[in-house]
Design a protein around this nucleic acid. Structure first.
Lengths: 247, 247
DNA sequence: CGGGGAGTTGAAACGCCTCAAATGAGGTGG
DNA sequence: CCACCTCATTTGAGGCGTTTCAACTCCCCG
């Protein structure tokens, strides 16, 4: 009954086995399969269902008139699109896959039912949302203040730690299935410079990256290089174990 | 009975006079006064109340170990800190004033009461939250893809339009009360370059900026220069006039 | 065997940064 | 009321990080 989402939420809150089975049920809702580089949601669409990424990688992105693309967030398995997005009239960004991926398409009514009847789950989902917002803030810091080297180190740290939280790392390594162009679009760098920066990171012994597989030999070392402060991921369980109303 | 917050929410949703008076009451909750450049919330604090900015300017910011500071958001009058922030155990960023400012400190229980009993207000507040998140995404795009010139133009557009939504513009102009150093910290530029960029914008006739007052002679012109797409501010009323549950 | 996308490398150009110093505006105390 | 301090803005010059353009390699797939 474990899912990536339940594993993630348990980083923050204790779930009962009933809670876990509720999340498991959500993961089974209308599963949709996408190929690599397909759009799941397009800017301008009317928001409808909430998407839960089950497998594969995806991203939010925005495109400027002249074609420049910025990836504003990566979706990893267990990640959820905005809980209450249907308040808005239309999407201001797109969501696309990077690899083949499967999503659960959760209807508004299902979600409302779950939130009403399972307060602990509700709290976990809100926590998830708040973490995503915090990540977005941290990306702002990353793009605004860090050099290419630090920035890349920071992103790799973040991805590694997020993947670890959903159980998708193995022996200090994880998948990194996207291209250097994708990385460039996420980091506000040119693809050429991404390439050179990765080589610098390799040269410094901070990463081993080959065939879409990333190894981090010394997590503390790369954290230091990136000035990575994990507090924004809010991964330690707080004193909020009790299931309280969350608005 | 009008407040900056009610004016803003009415950009999106129709409020009854009762709704407006509820918002007015919120603005009167425990008002706190701050001087310029004071911290309101510090990274590491346990989140407690929700702050509503009544007057003055403030910002969210994060600081790196080595002192580099990134302003990740500006607060204008009528802006609200994260609605359900108390789910988190500690703040991952700070909130500080830029000018002398007053905040209403709204307790969690007051907020819950309002949200429960006034669904239209609740929906408006969630809309506000979603817009703030969308702004954060747009800042990511701004820092990642736009040149200094476009970036600055974009920020000034955004601030002007947000201020207009709460009725704080006058004759095509608005206050711009912070320093070039603040601008630099928000835009990921050096203060020197901010200065030169502002001069470029003046030279291009896109702005008139003197004595903390900004005039935008031709809003469409500066929007074009910035490739500004206002959709992320979600300012047009949608079809969601009905007051629905919002989780 | 040919084509195409991803990764790599080199060289030159450019945008932005840093350092440094000058000017201007506001505030305070003598 | 002026001298002086401080802080914000402005200007200049040189340097560095990153971009751009272009070419080449590698590998997968048809």
């Amino acid at each position: 009954m474990e899912t990536t989402l339940s594993r993630k939420l348990e980083q923050f809150i204790k779930l009962s086995s009933e809670d876990r089975s509720v999340l498991y049920r959500l993961s089974g809702e209308r599963v949709r399969r996408f190929g690599a580089r397909e759009d799941v949601i397009r800017e301008g669409d009317a928001p409808k269902d909430v998407y839960l990424l089950l497998s594969g990688w995806a991203c939010r992105y925005k495109q400027l008139e002249d074609g420049r693309r910025q990836i504003v967030a990566f979706f990893l398995p267990g990640d959820l699109c905005d809980l209450n997005i249907y308040i808005l009239k239309e999407m201001d960004h797109s969501v696309g896959t990077l690899t083949p991926a499967t999503f659960a398409e959760i209807t508004r009514s299902t979600l409302e039912e779950v939130v009403l009847n399972h307060p602990r789950v509700a709290q976990g989902l809100w926590w998830e949302t708040l973490v995503n917002i915090a990540i977005q803030r941290e990306w702002t810091v990353n793009l605004g203040q860090r050099s290419a080297f630090e920035r890349m180190a920071h992103l790799l740290c973040e991805l590694y730690i997020r993947l670890r939280a959903v159980g998708l790392t193995k022996d200090g390594g994880c998948e990194l299935p996207f291209t250097q162009v994708d990385l460039a679009d996420a980091m506000g760098l040119s693809p050429v410079h991404v390439n050179r920066t990765l080589q610098e990171l390799r040269g410094a012994g901070l990463i081993v990256l080959r065939d879409k597989w990333l190894e981090i030999p010394d997590l503390d070392a790369i954290k230091n290089a990136a000035m990575f402060n994990p507090n924004y991921l809010h991964l330690e369980r707080g004193p909020h174990e009790q299931a309280a109303r969350v608005l």
